[in-house]
Design a protein around this nucleic acid. Sequence first.
DNA 1: GGTTCGACTGTATGCGCATACATTTCGGTC
DNA 2: GACCGAAATGTATGCGCATACAGTCGAACC
Lengths: 370, 370
Amino acid sequence: MVEKTPTVYDVAEMAGVSIATVSRYFRNPAAVRETTRERVREVVRELGYVPSGSARGLAARRTGTIGVCFPSFDDVAQIDARRLEGGPPVQVRVDADAHVDTGSDLYIAEVVRGTEIEAWRHGFAVMIAVPRGAAAHNVVEGLAGRVDGLVTLARAIDADQLAHIARRLPVVVVAGPREGDVYDHVTANNHGGMVALTDHLIDDHRLTRLEFVGGPEDSPDAQTRFEGFTEAMLLAGLGVPERPIARCDFTRAGGRETGRRLLAEGLLDDLDGLVCANDQSALGVLDELTAAGVRVPQDLAVTGFDGIEASNVATPRLTTVRQPMVELGRLAVAQVLHRLNEPMTEPTTRVLPVEVLLRDSCGPHAGDVA
Amino acid sequence: MVEKTPTVYDVAEMAGVSIATVSRYFRNPAAVRETTRERVREVVRELGYVPSGSARGLAARRTGTIGVCFPSFDDVAQIDARRLEGGPPVQVRVDADAHVDTGSDLYIAEVVRGTEIEAWRHGFAVMIAVPRGAAAHNVVEGLAGRVDGLVTLARAIDADQLAHIARRLPVVVVAGPREGDVYDHVTANNHGGMVALTDHLIDDHRLTRLEFVGGPEDSPDAQTRFEGFTEAMLLAGLGVPERPIARCDFTRAGGRETGRRLLAEGLLDDLDGLVCANDQSALGVLDELTAAGVRVPQDLAVTGFDGIEASNVATPRLTTVRQPMVELGRLAVAQVLHRLNEPMTEPTTRVLPVEVLLRDSCGPHAGDVA
DNA sequence: GGTTCGACTGTATGCGCATACATTTCGGTC
DNA sequence: GACCGAAATGTATGCGCATACAGTCGAACC
């Protein structure tokens, strides 16, 4: 099936030219005479020659690829357990449960899509890696060694290792900066979005008893959103919670768990609204509230953050803050490429605008039919 | 920011060892005495050394990465046009329109996720590439040169080029085989799933006047699904359409366009149900039907195919056939790795089981509350 | 003290390509 | 036909690492 891989030398010999000409044929065709080009083209096709990226990368001192690193919430053990084959070829079942949790993180998928698009525009490839398990460190090191620059989502790479590889590569972090770090950052306006959303709940819906469902403790974005929430509460003269009423891990499953706990502990009884740190957890909370007969938004308002597609088709449609996810990815790559050319400029933090999307889960709005 | 990149030679010299020992430190630490290891570790940290993937790949004759190639429906020009910055930092708006089209393809995202997981399990990285635009050919060639094996979704790479690179690499196609091709294939049971779904519409819901909304002409999956549909119709003694009543490009936007056209031309008037080639287009059709006041499923049943998350949260919830998308990706990578070890075995086609999910868009089922 | 064996380390080489530089060829010109 | 500049091509080298093979060293043993 796969034959011995030919090299430039093979092509050069068969075409009766030197390896430099073969190299030029690929790198700079205009520098090769048309008749020669034709000969090389013929041999390349005949041999099935494909230039080695490794050799090219070594010689040219650049790989032409950008690395993208992100965390994963996959339960790999569970996925592993799933049989790849076997079982009946078709199974029919009534699927009455609206709950679903593919485990996929739409936010990440969109950001990755953005990186791919921007990389493509500049002729770069994208290599993705998820540091998980015991070999997480090796995964990151392998990635770092194979790329010209790295985009990483917050919390994907531990601080020490990130500092280590940042000495060799431009690194751009998708998320707000934490104190004292020296990387380029690209983030959305988490603070402003959350302030505006909270203001809306307070001013337009007259909700006063609000609590915040937080994200992971080490997520700068989750932290910033909580601060936006408390700031809006404070400025409105309302009681400011010291901390989130609960925390979950940004997943829908986590949101459901949180919802169950809040319900069980009766923590929602005197509440007007629940402001969640992201969409997935808000959807999870929503799942449980609906199952428990709590009406949203009549009994309790619920809001999310991110603007993933699922938030728009949920029932009720989730009021949220849309981050420009694709643009975050694009800008991150653009910044990596920029720093590749201008290594000595100061680290920058770019904050992209957000859009507060008022939908149904926070109550009716002027203009709504209902 | 980024310093001159140190090499094995630098590390070896500073640590007072040979480059072979440095190499062993990374490749096979057990072969290095602990005291030596410690010294190397120290220097590696101090210098910020990261082994070059290119050099390693060249010397070892393998890159340790798997390529994943998929088509894209992104309107890059439109994405390009979107400003990356500027505008107000926060915009608040009532989002009354449930329609949404992020352009993201959940099916692809899930398959890619599967490839990443399986690659990770075997210590491989994943490089993704989308052949689009004038340089599509170069994108694929660059990818092929940088990986040990390639997974490609159907229709992502043109036949000639695929044949070319398959001479150098194991190639696995995610989709059914087309006549005469020699690659390994991994696909879901499109045919069986569609037969079962159509049978359900006919037998359980007594729908007889059914039409099929097709996918792209060159999609083997779409073709297979259509064949499953016609086969079920034939066996039920019903009229078998020669061809799909319409075709669209697998996107939600395409589905909407199709929906509008069918409505405008009155083609739905005497119909019981619309069987769509995939979820996205079914959702698009649904958007337009709902907007036009057509009640689904009372006036018309609609079904999808794929089982993406959005199909589960749509209103009404979409009856569909779930493909094991993550498993498709996993199995594709597993097959690539297998062929890397056993190059001479015959090409295989593996068909994964599917699950027909009966939800609301085809009518009520026993056990349903409504 | 010499021998042996295993654990550890060093030396030498080539992986396939890009590219600086040298050389040849080509198309005009006088 | 000799000459010239530009275009085209060739030669030589090094990119950073893995690895085959050779060498060293120390401990156990005779």
